[in-house]
Structures are given as structure tokens and as C-alpha cells.
Design a protein around this nucleic acid. Structure first.
Length: 418
RNA sequence: GGAGGAGUGCCCGAGUGGCUAAAGGGGGCGGACUGUAAAUCCGCUGGCUAUGCCUACGUUGGUUCGAAUCCAACCUCCUCCA
């Protein structure tokens, strides 16, 4: 491997961020001079990003904090209207413009946690590619950009090949995604002097295509840098919890649950994740890496708290840690657990357990609740529910003034009478 | 445009008149074991005012005591031909 000298690339390298790079030496040189202007694109397919996007966000973060250059966050308000076929068997469903706008607003929020935005030379900017993609004229685009693309080559690229090989539909609109992303890179090069595009390894093809287009259209030299895609040591795709994806926005996944997600990391992944998802110094991580067996749990707690602190802040992170400590280790009720409120009047009348668990959002229906009771999964105030006709009333309120509902060993909700 | 084939639960996939809320697998969830881990084993994996009722096998109608299964039309996808 090339000898790296810039703080930026040495950091990425030792923390396991680098998957492929078009020219490590050149990027290293630019980083050393603080002249990198790097972007990562995020499509607006949901109202929040999830942990899968976190690696690339961290790359932008390191870019800025190591002084290597200026980060650009590209929100794909334009490309989302088209849909990226990379790594997908099926066509993404077409979103309405309103949905895309709403998603964009949701996604944007998370970046303030990781990047400093502003006018300064090293401060970040956010752009929306709809700005230049939406007004494009089809004929002009074909003449200026389309002529540089070989269909023969496009069909051999992974994003298209996967579909073709499996004889899955690849619509023309998706086939064009590659052109648009390539064009984005050229636009950013021209508008902002952008010289590096980063992303997940599945974006390699799209990024390189953009570099190539830049060369043909006469921009300065462009570079590509990708990070590995996230999988757990046992091979599962990352980013799933009982309740769905691991969202970064708090309105979609509470800080408590986010903390729990990281706390439940597999042993074999802890060190790797500490490097990728926290900003702890390597020295500290290497210390944690020496832990063995059950001690690894300490490292997991550090991981959980650090990762949570990065996106939800110090206070939320320690609250989550605290709640977990009380719940799992001290075995006492924690006020910081997720909670739902219930009217005192309703409780006075008597509330069926099934209904209670549904209201708490721990099970999805009464039938589900019944099945879980049979399986011994539901607990009220830490006592297993055995009778599905059990009624909760005032007498179930603990000294802490709540009723604790548990689903399995890990998911708890406090019901607060109000 | 012509000929043939296919559409089943979160996904894959069996089922070709009643015994089918639908085999099997995957995924997911829960339990046991542990360390809030992994691996393993076991259970669950439409809804409800629940010994019954409702919704479900692309859509809409029809045949029948009874349909995912038969018929018709429509929609979507695939293959071959032009």
C-alpha cells in the first residue's frame, strides 16, 4: 500500500474506511494541502437516513476535522425523481415531488451534527442536484453529455448487469441514473471546484463514470474514494431492529433505541464499529480491543454511548446509557425508558393487557399480543403475563407512578397515567 | 401486432374443487442457554367484540352446496416470432 502522509487518509485508513480509491497518492497530496473539495450524494428516498449512510457521513466529518478540505453534501432532489438501480433487484417506486421535498428536509437535519456549515474555506455546503438537473433540456443533454456514454459499457456495469443477468426489468429511466450522477460530479466540479466523490462501494461504478465524464468534458482531474458496505460479522445486512430500520432522526428512532442498537453489536464487530462510528482516539479503541469474553460488553457500552452522542448529543446519550444500566443491570425501573401516556380515567375503568401492549406499541395487534403471551414474552412490572384477559388498573401502578410493560428481555415501555 | 407462459402470505415457493389462514424454506420475533453477543435448540410469524366471525392466493364478474384451484373479461410481467 502507498505510504500515506495526510491526517485525513491515514485516519480513514487506520479506521477501516477505505475500500477503493482511484488514486490514493494524488488524493493524499491534495488532503495534505487542504485542497480537497469532496462530496457525497444522498438520495431522498426516505425522511431520514439510516446507519447505512453513517459511514459516508463520517468520512465527510473526518475530511473537515482533519483539515483536508471542504465537504459538500449533495441531496439528490433531482436524481431521486429517477431512482438508482444500483444493487437493487426491483425498480424503486417513483416518489412524488412533495414526498421528495419532505424527505430532503428530514435528511438535512442530521448533517448539522457532523459538519460545520458556512461560507468559510473549510466549511461545508449543501446542494440539491434538482437545481441543475430539473431545468435540463433533453436534446441538449443528449448532445453534451449523452454522446460521451457507451451503452455497451454501461451494460457491463454492475448496476445494470445485475438486472440484465437476472433478466429483471431495468427501465430506461433507471438506466439514465448513471448519466445523471456522472453529470452531478461534473457540475460540482465546475460550480464548486469539487475534486473528490466519496460513497459506498456500490457507488464505485457511478463515481468512476463521473470521473470519466469529467475528463471528456474538460474538467480538472476528479477522484473517487469508496468505503465498504456495512455488514455484521455474521453476514447480515446492517441496520435492522425489531421495529425496522435504524434511522438517524430521533423522531423515527429514539435515542434509547439507537443506543440499544449499538449495545447489541456482535462481539466480532465491536472494534470495527468503534473505529467507524465513533471519534474516539485509536489509542483508546486499541485498549478496548484487548477486552475478552464478557468484558467486551464494556466496549459495547462505550460504542453505544459514543455513537449515540454523535447524533443525539451528550445528554440523550447518557440518559440512554443510564436507562439501560438501571433496566438491565440494576433491575430497577428507569424513568428514561420510552413511555406512553394513558388517561387515568381509562385506567380506572380497567385496561385489558392486550390493549395495553398494543397502545404501548410493543405488539401490533391483540392477536399478536395473545401469541406473545403464549410464548412468555410479555411482562407487566417484570411479572410474566399468563392470562390474556388480565386487566390492568390503578393497583398496577408502581411506587414510581408508572406501569412497566416489557416485550422480551430488551424492549420496555413505561405507561404513565395522566 | 401474433403465439405461448406466469401472477400465492414480508420474500422465495408448493398447492390445480371441500381435510387450506394455505406445505416447505428464508427472513423476522419470542423462549432456553449466555454476557442485553455469536452459534445452537424450541416455539410463534392475517384481523376481531373469539369454541364463532371477517379479510386473504393480480382485478372484476360467473359456474358450484362449496373456488387459490373451473369459466370469462381485464390488468401486469416474461419468452418466442414480426
Amino acid at each position: 500500500m502507498t505510504e500515506l502522509s495526510s491526517p485525513f487518509l491515514t485516519t480513514l485508513e487506520e479506521r477501516g474506511f477505505i475500500h477503493q480509491c482511484s488514486d490514493l497518492e494524488a488524493v493524499d497530496a491534495l488532503a495534505s494541502k487542504g485542497e480537497l473539495i469532496a462530496y457525497v450524494g444522498y438520495d431522498c428516498t426516505a425522511s431520514s437516513l439510516h446507519v447505512g449512510s453513517l459511514i459516508s457521513i463520517m468520512m465527510l466529518h473526518w475530511l473537515q476535522t482533519t483539515g483536508a478540505g471542504r465537504p459538500i453534501v449533495l441531496l439528490g432532489g433531482g436524481t431521486t425523481r429517477v431512482g438508482d438501480p444500483s444493487g437493487r433487484d426491483e425498480t424503486r417506486k417513483i416518489l412524488t415531488l412533495d414526498q421528495i421535498e419532505a424527505n430532503k428536509a428530514g435528511i438535512q437535519k442530521v448533517f448539522d451534527r457532523f459538519l460545520k456549515f458556512g461560507e468559510g474555506a473549510k466549511e461545508g455546503t449543501t446542494v440539491d442536484n434538482a437545481e441543475w438537473l430539473a431545468p435540463l433540456n433533453y436534446i441538449d443533454f443528449l448532445r453534451d453529455v449523452g454522446r460521451h456514454f457507451s451503452v455497451n459499457r454501461m451494460m457491463t456495469m454492475d448496476s445494470a448487469k445485475l438486472r440484465l443477468d437476472r433478466e429483471q426489468e431495468l427501465s430506461f429511466i433507471e438506466f439514465n441514473y448513471m448519466l445523471l450522477q456522472a453529470y452531478d460530479y461534473v457540475e460540482l466540479a465546475r460550480r464548486q471546484g469539487c475534486n473528490l466523490q466519496m460513497g459506498g462501494s456500490d457507488q464505485w461504478g457511478n463515481i468512476v463514470t463521473g470521473m470519466d465524464l469529467g475528463r471528456r468534458m474538460g474538467t480538472h482531474q476528479l477522484f473517487a474514494l469508496t468505503c465498504p458496505l456495512l455488514t455484521t460479522a455474521s453476514g447480515a445486512k446492517m441496520g435492522k431492529t425489531a421495529s425496522g430500520a435504524v434511522w438517524l432522526n430521533e423522531d423515527q428512532l429514539s435515542a434509547y433505541e439507537y443506543w440499544q442498537y449499538w449495545r447489541n453489536t456482535e462481539d466480532a464487530d465491536v472494534v470495527r464499529f468503534l473505529k467507524l462510528f465513533t471519534t474516539l482516539p485509536m489509542k483508546r479503541i486499541n485498549e478496548l480491543a484487548t477486552l475478552k469474553g464478557a468484558e467486551i460488553n464494556e466496549a459495547k457500552k462505550v460504542l453505544a454511548t459514543e455513537a449515540t452522542r454523535l447524533i443525539h448529543g451528550e445528554e440523550k446519550a447518557s440518559q440512554a446509557e443510564n436507562a439501560a444500566q438501571k433496566t438491565f443491570e440494576a433491575g430497577v425501573h428507569a424513568d428514561d425508558l420510552p413511555s406512553v401516556s394513558i388517561s387515568t380515567a381509562e385506567l380506572a375503568k380497567g385496561l385489558g393487557v392486550l390493549n395495553a401492549f398494543v397502545q404501548a406499541g410493543l405488539v401490533k395487534s391483540n392477536g399478536d399480543a395473545r401469541r406473545q403471551i403464549k410464548g412468555g414474552a410479555l411482562k407487566v412490572n417484570d411479572t410474566a403475563v399468563t392470562d390474556d384477559s388480565q386487566i390492568l388498573s390503578d393497583s398496577d401502578i408502581t411506587e414510581d407512578g408508572v406501569i412497566k410493560l416489557s416485550f422480551g428481555k430488551k424492549r420496555h415501555v413505561l405507561m404513565r397515567p395522566q
